[in-house]
Every structure is written in structure tokens, then in C-alpha cells.
Design a protein around this nucleic acid. Structure first.
Lengths: 172, 172
DNA sequence: CGCAACATTACCGTTTACGTGAAAGTTGAG
DNA sequence: CTCAACTTTCACGTAAACGGTAATGTTGCG
């Protein structure tokens, strides 16, 4: 690899908003909107006030998108789920800054509680969704069974065709 | 249970819109809106044009609500999932009307295909959601581990009593 | 019957989650 | 240094999913 330039700090690749957004399948507008709602804050700003995103920002965006698309949460609900996470993340710095073990414990417990809450909500949603899958699966199975049972009737054309439609018109 | 009245036709209990809506946790307004979008049609209308819902209507409403709340589908997506189901349900009548086994088979196969499609979509969503649960669970586990690993310098008289955060859920 | 409670259609208002410019400034490859 | 491409904030526009209200008609219990 020929270095055309020195690479003093390749450690932190900061992305412009379009790159970050594209990375997770969002538009810059949405990302700004999420920031407006307090869902995240770019790791930094350039000299000219351009938003600059790091890896954790991108992951956070991905998580947000998952909550929205896959879990179907509203942005307001997502905001609650991540509520003070931003503020707490600032305290993550405080974690390393403090030497007080009680303080460290408090911070970690807070974080733990949040994750447990998130996992709980998600699992509840998975459970309800699974119920729907099962129901649909049940309907499918019953229909499949009826289809299986059809051939026998193929032999006997009219078993009970004397069933006049009790209601319903063909309107829509 | 003594019958205070004759029960000439207890077979089909038809509900007014408010009863049907309440049954599944919706508002009459939403139910009318869903009808406007073509998601369902009341089984009948009263003499004065009141909407009247039967059991299958209620089940359909419940399914719609599940798709919206639990699966997070938009009403447009739900419309697609149930798309011709309404039309096909009309054909369900045709199923009993026809004596043509080939026709019956076609109808059932159509129905089967729809259920399979629905189950497929739901399972895909469950899978993605499960991934999110796992990720969150992973973060939780790592945080828990770090908490465990905290130096037992807890000898320091912390201001807070060391009661393990009562993880209370306010979920409905 | 009488009438309170509920229903119907029609229409306007609201919130959410962005899209779409406009005007002005910033970046960075060449 | 230039200049196209990108970004900023501000502001207005919009589709989706209903909520509310009005004007009017329907039900059904007493």
C-alpha cells in the first residue's frame, strides 16, 4: 500500500451525514429529524458545523431503524426506550473519570436496567407476533388439510350442492 | 340457565359498530376508516343502514389490529396482505355454491397460498425482531458481567442502600 | 309512542414522519 | 484557488391514520 499521505489518525473514521445515512438505509433528512427528536447526536461537528458520525452513531442509527421497521415502534416510543441513554452515555465518560466505585456501580446498574427494559419490550413483541404466526400457521394447516381431503370428493361430484347462499351480494 | 325468551336465531349475533370496535380495542372511527381503505366490510347493514358485524368480522378486525400493533405493518401493507382475501371470501360462497371439484380445488389452493405468504412475512419479521432481542440481550449480558466484575470495594458506605433495582414493568 | 343513545355521511383539524425547496455557507479534488 | 457537490438552518408541503364536530337519521327500552 503506497501511502500518498500520512495517516496520523485512521482510527476514527468520521462520516458525513449522507454517508452515515446511506450506511443504514436512511435519508439525511431522517437522521436530522431523529436528532431533532433527541434520538442521537453526532459524535462531532466539523469546522464548518457539518455533522460528523462515528461507528457508535451508525450503530445507534441502525438500532433505531430496526426498532422502527422491524419492531414497528413509533419514534416517540423509541425515544423513551433510549431516553436518557444519550445522557447516560455522557456519564459513561464520567464512569471512567470517577474513581468512586459506588458511582460506577450506579452507572452500570442504570445501564443494565435499561437493557433489561428494552429486552423485555422486544420479547413481549416477539411473543405477540409469534402468536399471530401460529394462528396464521393454523389456518394454513386447516386449509391444507381440506385441500388434501378434496380428492375423495372429486369422485363424488354432488354431495350437498343444495346449499343456497344464505346472504351476500357480489357488490364490493 | 333459564331462557327468558325464545331463541329463534341465536346463531348469528350481529354487533353494532361500537360493540364490535370495543371487542377488539378499536374506535368506531378506526373501523369505518379501515372499511374506507377496503380492509373489511360489515357482514350486513340494518334497515336504517347501520353497520352490522358478525364473528368473522370481529376476528378480521382483531387480525388487522394485530398486524398493525404487534407486527407494525402499515394499513397499506395490511391491505396488500388481505388484498383479495375479501374478494376470495366472496368466492368462499362460490365454493359452497359450485359443485365443480376443480373449482373448489383452485379456491382452496389460492387460500393456502395467501396463508403461506402471510406466515412467511410474519416469520421474517419475527426473525429480524429476534435478532434485535439477541443483540440487546448481548449488551445486557456484557453489562451484567461488568457489574459482577466490579471491585468489591463496596466497603465504602454508599449513599444509596444496595437494594437491587426493582425492575417493575408498567406494561399493560 | 317518546326520546335518549347511538349511527351515518361529510368535512375539517391534528400528529407523525418525513419530502422538498430556498438561501447561504463548507469541503475537497484538481 | 476554483468550483461542483455537499451541508446548514428555516420553512412550507404532504401522506397516513385517525379525532372531532355538525347535521340528520335509526334503535330500542319504557
Amino acid at each position: 500500500m503506497t501511502e500518498t499521505k500520512e495517516r496520523p489518525a485512521p482510527s476514527v473514521r468520521l462520516l458525513h451525514i449522507q454517508e452515515a445515512a446511506a450506511e443504514v438505509g436512511l435519508t439525511p433528512r431522517s437522521v436530522r429529524y431523529y436528532e431533532e427528536l433527541g434520538l442521537l447526536k453526532p459524535a462531532a461537528r466539523s469546522e464548518g458545523d457539518y455533522r460528523l458520525y462515528d461507528a457508535t452513531d451508525v450503530e445507534r442509527l441502525r438500532f433505531i431503524k430496526g426498532l422502527r421497521d422491524d419492531a414497528g415502534f413509533s419514534l416517540a416510543e423509541i425515544a423513551k426506550l433510549l431516553e436518557d441513554e444519550a445522557a447516560r452515555e455522557r456519564e459513561h465518560v464520567a464512569f471512567h473519570a470517577t474513581s468512586d466505585p459506588a458511582e460506577r456501580q450506579r452507572i452500570l446498574r442504570d445501564r443494565l436496567a435499561r437493557y433489561e427494559h428494552q429486552a423485555h419490550m422486544l420479547r413481549a413483541k416477539v411473543a405477540r407476533l409469534q402468536t399471530m404466526v401460529d394462528e396464521t400457521e393454523g389456518r394454513r394447516a386447516r386449509t391444507a388439510a381440506r385441500l388434501e381431503a378434496l380428492p375423495s370428493e372429486l369422485a363424488a361430484p354432488s354431495t350437498e350442492s343444495a346449499l343456497p347462499a344464505p346472504n351476500q351480494e357480489t357488490a364490493r
